[in-house]
Design a protein around this nucleic acid. Structure first.
Lengths: 204, 204
DNA sequence: CACCACTAAGCGAGCGCTCACTTACAATGG
DNA sequence: CCATTGTAAGTGAGCGCTCGCTTAGTGGTG
């Protein structure tokens, strides 16, 4: 069974038209940026009239927020689920980077909007996604801090190391494209090796 | 002797008014993004009337191009000068990362525009800065490839490793701010250690 | 006086968004 | 079983406003 991309990305958004608008929004925002895309762009990419957007979303910014919030929740739960099912810091970091990087490659269009368009959000909505971002960073930092405490990691400052790890993942969405000759999964594995070495681990 | 920030950033741009406009542009573009800033924003930040911009630049896009081209040339020459004065791959990478990261921290406002607003450029201008970017990436890749050949680096794919190194540097401009409790120089040194470990070097 | 940097005023285009209206369809009741 | 009513989803037209940029004119300088 195959399902539409929009249904795969946002399974619990209803109706399908709203999902199509989100998909059109993601693609436009990723290509041209939020401020350079017009509501007419989005609507016509979704095969509808300009006014149709406002049946499902109160504003253009609300559409961006829906995309951004959903994307941040997805990456947070991805990170949290690794921490929930593993305990060894080395394994945690390996799987965490594998999944985080693979997601930013496979979903690079969504990820680009999530990572680089959040400043276009109104203050209140921005604060909500900023909280989610802080939680993601905190999880990574705590794993590194714990590994440093037990001696499996050797890092100067866990804060800086966590920043570096996340930078590597986030930035994948900036340069990755369909033409990249490396699958998301493979890239995630390669990056997790780089990160583990960066954190001063002996590769097992 | 102190000199204005704009004169420090663009010593050979004349007259001073043009530099002030570039500085105002950098600050506006970095804060709100290219498409969200208006020519009125820029002009009033430079203490002039909206029309004054067009005395010195033919368009808003041309102002962005001037900023972007200058910034790319600066980072390229930074990278090339390290390669010109050192030969050991380990030393080259260390200094290269130190300088690249420190620049992206100290000049994070300019760097933000350079790294994240280039898609707003018209096709022709975009192609010019894209060429500069490819040269930067090429230099880094070649240093890593050479180090891998002589055995001082151990990396799976030099292409991926080069991407990772640049990602770390570029992304600094996204999160670094005046309030960051680490000087650009210190950050560069810490990052260069992370990178050397990432590339499989024994720290000397 | 000629020149040049700069301004005040404003033009045409296109923006986000709204409004009056139509359509498709499900529920209700005699 | 059909006529009636209510509702959600969508359209075409266009409003009020702001955008990038232009034009006509001004004041200071050599």
């Amino acid at each position: 069974m195959t399902m539409s991309l929009s249904a795969e990305l946002w399974p619990d958004v209803q109706p399908e038209t709203a999902r199509r608008l989100m998909l059109a929004g993601v693609e436009s925002f990723a290509r041209r940026g939020y401020h350079a895309t017009t509501t007419r762009d989005i609507a016509s990419a979704a095969g509808m009239s300009p006014a149709a957007l406002y049946v499902h979303f109160p504003s253009k910014a609300a559409l961006l927020f829906a995309i951004s919030k959903y994307g941040h929740e997805q990456t947070l739960s991805l990170v949290e689920s690794v921490v929930a099912r593993e305990t060894d810091p080395v394994v945690r970091i390996r799987l965490l980077v594998e999944d985080f990087v693979a997601w930013h490659a496979r979903r690079h269009t969504v990820a680009r909007v999530v990572q680089y368009e959040l400043h276009a959000l109104p203050d209140e909505e921005f604060e909500i996604v900023a909280r989610l971002r802080r939680r993601i960073e905190q999880v990574v930092r705590e794993v590194i801090t714990e590994g440093a405490a037990t001696g499996v990691f050797t890092v100067g400052d866990p804060h800086t190391a966590a920043r570096a790890v996340l930078s590597l993942g986030v930035d994948v969405s900036r340069w990755y494209s369909e033409r990249t000759r490396q699958t998301p999964k493979k890239l995630g594995q390669e990056y997790s090796e780089l990160v583990l070495r960066m954190l001063g681990t002996k590769l097992s």
